[in-house]
Design a protein around this nucleic acid. Structure first.
Length: 277
DNA sequence: CTCAGTGTTCAGTG
DNA sequence: TCACTGAACACTGA
């Protein structure tokens, strides 16, 4: 599921269901991969009977602020997500998830919470690359302390952005994916940003001019705000976005651009050579 | 059967 | 020490 917009959607869903309420039941799946570092039993003990004060997000990490520490932090890997019977779950074009109809708890559930008043939350993760961990001070301990600026809420000034980018010699695509640079930019969003900023993803970051880095910075902001505002429902993204074409190889855009695909920064990258220089 | 895939981390290299 | 690269992780679905 996750790119920043889906994590933000999960954050607001959890906020509606759980904030201000006490956790009255906890079930943890027997999965030592997802529960890495903190056992299912430890997580259960930390959550049961606690009141949820707030839900925070930084980059693609999410955590619950409880009335007693430690607090749980969640990362969704490639296929994790949150579900609640009260909230229609977001579906993403790229997720490939098949809807198998009503099923509760959903297939691949890892953590199930019931809160006072009847609300319920479930974290799922098919591929098990997601993580549930406990931290006493999430913001100031790894992995969250290692993140760069939050791409949605902490975008630096144009000048500062250029100064962060200029020392880096890796391809700009790889730098955008580095969570220690910008927290929350994932694979398709990096491609979308570079497409709209008209920058070739292979360009080395230190070769970009201030005008070019300013375009990238501004597109990080606008792409993320739009994606978050439509609840990460891909069908509602503007028709002009690369998003609608990047997964169908060999199919030109409606306005005639041919896309190229190549692995950059370890990830499949799509771009339009005719307009990205 | 093979392969790609919304992500992170770690080992190895220069 | 640092920046960077590529493999590993574990599994689903095409």
């Amino acid at each position: 599921m996750p790119e920043l917009p889906e994590v933000e959607a999960a954050r607001s869903a959890i906020q509606r269901v759980a904030v201000g309420r006490r956790i009255v039941a906890v079930r943890c799946a027997d999965d030592h991969i997802v529960f890495q570092g903190s056992s299912p039993a430890q997580v259960r003990r930390a959550l049961l009977g606690r009141r949820v004060r707030a839900v925070h997000r930084r980059g693609k990490h999410l955590w619950l602020e409880l009335d007693r520490r430690p607090w749980p932090i969640f990362h969704f890997g490639m296929t994790g997500g949150f579900h609640s019977p009260a909230v229609k779950s977001v579906k993403l074009k790229s997720s490939g998830n098949k809807d198998r109809g009503p099923q509760w708890p959903p297939r691949f559930w890892k953590l199930q919470l019931k809160v006072a008043g009847g609300g319920e939350l479930v974290m799922t993760d098919a591929r098990r690359l997601g993580r549930i961990r406990l931290r006493h001070d999430p913001r100031n301990e790894p992995p969250i302390s290692l993140l760069g600026f939050d791409a949605l809420h902490e975008l630096p000034s144009a000048r500062k952005f250029y100064e962060l980018l200029h020392p880096r010699r890796a391809p700009i695509k790889a730098v955008l994916l580095d969570q220690g640079f910008a927290a929350g930019v994932g694979n398709w969003i990096a491609d979308e940003v570079l497409y709209q900023a008209r920058i070739d993803p292979r360009r080395r970051a230190h070769t970009l001019t201030p005008a070019e880095t300013a375009r990238i910075r501004s597109k990080i902001g606008s792409v993320l705000r739009k994606a978050v505002s439509v609840g990460s429902d891909g069908d509602r993204f503007p028709r002009s976005w690369l998003f609608h074409y990047r997964w169908d190889r060999g199919v030109p855009t409606a306005w005639g651009e041919t896309l190229r695909h190549q692995t950059i920064g370890g990830r499949t990258t799509a771009w339009a050579p005719a307009v990205q220089k």
